[in-house]
Simulated scan of single mutants.
Amino acid sequence: MDKLEMRHTLLAAKARKQLSWEAIGSAVGMSPVWVASACYGMNSASHEVAHKLCDVLGVDSEAADALKAFPTKAWDEAIPQDPFVYRLYEVVGVYGETLKDVVQEKFGDGIMSAIDFTMEVDKVEDPKGDRVLLTLSGKFLPYKSW
């Protein structure tokens, strides 16, 4: 089973069992955001987590083998059409250089790691309409001079 077939298998099992990412993450002892990313094929899981995840979703060990495989992190370079994904793309397009400049003023010349990284998604209730709170936390990696 490759990552794409694994993705379809796991997402179908999630829908069939009517489980939330929060419930799945809690059952396997991992962040719901990370678990979703692994199920979408963008992260690899340890042997233990892969098998727990397959048990929770009721799928066979072929999916666990695919979960353990190292991913090729690639995405379609076309502008996303899904409104939610497009808005994130728009945020980076509009604010990317600004964020880079502000981070570099505070930390120096470098980047934020997407490897030593965590992300949380929270709902903030607001009388004017609930808000989405995305918290991205990546280790700062300074560029080296040699």
Rank of each mutant, 00 (worst) to 15 (best):
L4M: 08
M6H: 01
T9K: 08
R16H: 12
W21P: 00
E22C: 01
E22N: 11
A23W: 05
G25F: 03
V28P: 01
M30R: 15
S31L: 05
V33R: 08
S37G: 13
S37D: 09
C39F: 05
Y40H: 13
M42S: 04
M42A: 06
S44E: 12
A45F: 00
V49K: 01
V49R: 01
L53V: 08
C54E: 11
G58R: 08
G58Q: 07
V59F: 01
S61Q: 10
A64R: 00
A66P: 03
L67N: 00
L67A: 02
K73T: 06
A74H: 02
W75V: 08
Q81W: 01
F84T: 07
R87E: 12
E90F: 05
E90S: 08
E90M: 09
G93R: 13
V94L: 14
E97Y: 04
L99A: 11
L99V: 13
L99R: 04
K100D: 14
K100H: 09
Q104E: 15
K106P: 00
F107N: 10
G108E: 11
D109P: 00
I111K: 01
M112T: 03
I115S: 10
D116Q: 09
F117Q: 09
T118M: 09
V124I: 15
V124M: 12
K128V: 11
V132L: 15
V132P: 00
T135G: 04
L136D: 05
L136R: 01
K139Y: 09
F140Y: 15
P142S: 12
P142Q: 12
Y143H: 13
